[in-house]
Nucleic acid binder design. Structure first.
Length: 407
RNA sequence: GGACAGGUGGCCGAGUGGUUAAAGGCAGCAGACUGUAAAUCUGCCCGCGCAAGCGUACGCUAGUUCGAAUCUAGCCCUGUCCA
């Protein structure tokens, strides 16, 4: 359908919408008044990763089109240990740990949203504020009557688990109730009307809408984003080295930049629309670049996303490093550095020391496979000794480069 | 509480007394080809050691055995069904 509100038009054009509870109703609302909308985030780690970036960008779009973003940190739910990750039972975090994580995550949101007290300023709240006050009996009495087990069993999150004969613990089963409670609470406290989230959140969101309607008689809206995978089917934001973290302390800007620079050809247009503010016609031009020219678009993508997440300076530095390293065959200053003692280092120690190999055995295998290079020359001998005294370039394969620097 | 099934390397999954550091697949790393892409083909893929080899590893603990992932006992955990 075609939307009249700038919010839905923008979200639609850029590919954020997967499911929407009442398109016409929300469109109408967004066209006529400020819509406070929320997304919930986990507080289990000091940083969010690329997997959360779509959600962050949605809040940004919300604000860009004149609405109010509400960032909800799951401090309360983290306390219990959100089990929806299923296989790894998460470690219990101390209240201090959770508070520190929230503070750290806040720094990311500051780059994407403008916070304050104004009508369309973003706010961040912690669901611990209300959840920790909640008594079990109270919760049962106020919320319990509005949920039937029959219905809860029909939600995909539950149904799929049962069908696959996977364990579903009681707390997990209750999680949707807490989240529904959050939505209602946000409606009361902040006039929240909209909850957004990934497609796996659909059931939870719908529950919140129902609960709020039944208890408060308020009409609420829900919107989910498509499950984001890369073109080859992998979940976004996961690499061998681990998650692609948004925080600078968790992942160097150069590595972050490289993640985007190495995007699959087929993903470039979609990513540009979702993760950058570039105008659509410019994106259309970039994604249509033929053959290897698409690389220019990947550089733009890497620059834009890095700029948003890490700042313009970090983006420029990462780009310069990449240019020097790949095009120039030289060394960029953002590459990882290892001290090179005057007497030199063995190739194995250097590879392990700079982090290109996890163990000496792995380093030797890398050498045996022909992937280890010093100053661009393949090293075949695992006993090879790198002389000290000058800056050397060490590489694992074609993409991982580092500096050995005399100290 | 009872009956049954099961717990193997990052994941999935074979193995049911020795030739098993454990088939196969996925993921990952590297090489070739390229465009720091994809697809494809090739090699590698627990740690230490130049190596012979050593050390760890098949839920936990104790045992049987020359020898156990494989057998026994107890325990823990998960699922299905019954109470």
């Amino acid at each position: 359908m075609t939307y009249t509100s700038s919010l839905l038009r923008l979200l639609d054009e850029r590919g954020y919408i997967h499911q929407l509870t009442d398109p016409a109703g929300l469109d109408q609302l967004a066209a006529t008044q400020i819509v406070p909308g929320y997304i919930g985030f986990d507080a289990t780690a000091p940083s969010l990763h690329v997997g959360s970036l779509v959600q962050i960008m949605m809040l940004r779009r919300l604000q860009q089109t004149g609405h109010k973003p509400i960032v909800v940190m799951g401090g309360g739910t983290t306390k219990i240990g959100d089990p929806s990750g299923k296989d790894e039972s998460r470690k219990m975090l101390t209240p201090e740990g959770i508070a520190a994580n929230i503070a750290s995550i806040h720094t990311i949101f500051e780059r994407f949203l403008s916070f304050g007290d104004g009508p369309t300023d973003a706010i961040m709240v912690d669901n611990d504020e209300w959840l920790s006050q909640l008594g079990y009996i109270d919760l049962l009495r106020t919320v319990g009557p509005h949920f039937t087990i029959n219905r809860m069993l029909t939600f995909d999150s539950v149904k799929l688990r049962l069908e696959r004969e996977q364990p579903l613990s009681f707390i997990e089963f209750n999680y949707m109730i807490l989240q529904a409670y959050d939505f209602r609470e946000l409606a009361l406290r902040h006039g929240c009307r909209l909850q957004m989230g990934g497609s796996d959140q659909w059931g939870n969101i719908v529950n919140g809408i129902e609960l709020t309607r039944r208890m408060e008689g308020r009409e609420m809206f829900g919107l989910t984003t498509p499950l984001l995978t890369t073109a080859d089917g992998a979940k976004m934001g996961k690499t061998a080295a681990g998650a692609v973290w948004l925080n600078d302390e968790a992942l160097p800007a150069y590595d972050f930049w490289q993640y985007w620079r190495n995007a699959d050809d087929r993903d470039v247009g979609r990513f540009l629309r979702l993760f950058t503010d570039l105008p659509l016609d410019e994106i259309a031009r970039l994604e249509a670049l033929p053959g290897s020219e698409i690389n220019a678009a990947k550089v733009v993508l890497a620059n834009e996303v890095t700029k948003l997440c890490r700042g313009a300076e970090a983006a420029a530095a990462a780009e310069a490093t990449a240019a020097a390293t790949f095009a120039g065959g030289g060394l960029g200053q953002d590459l990882p550095v290892l001290d090179l003692p005057a007497e030199g280092l063995t190739i194995v120690d250097a590879l392990v020391g700079i982090g290109f190999a996890a163990s000496r055995g792995e380093a030797k295998r890398l050498i045996a496979g022909g992937g280890a290079k010093v100053d661009g020359e393949a090293v075949a001998d695992e006993a090879f000794h790198i002389a000290g005294g000058a800056e050397r370039r060490i590489s694992s394969g074609k993409k991982k480069h580092g500096i050995l620097r005399p100290n």
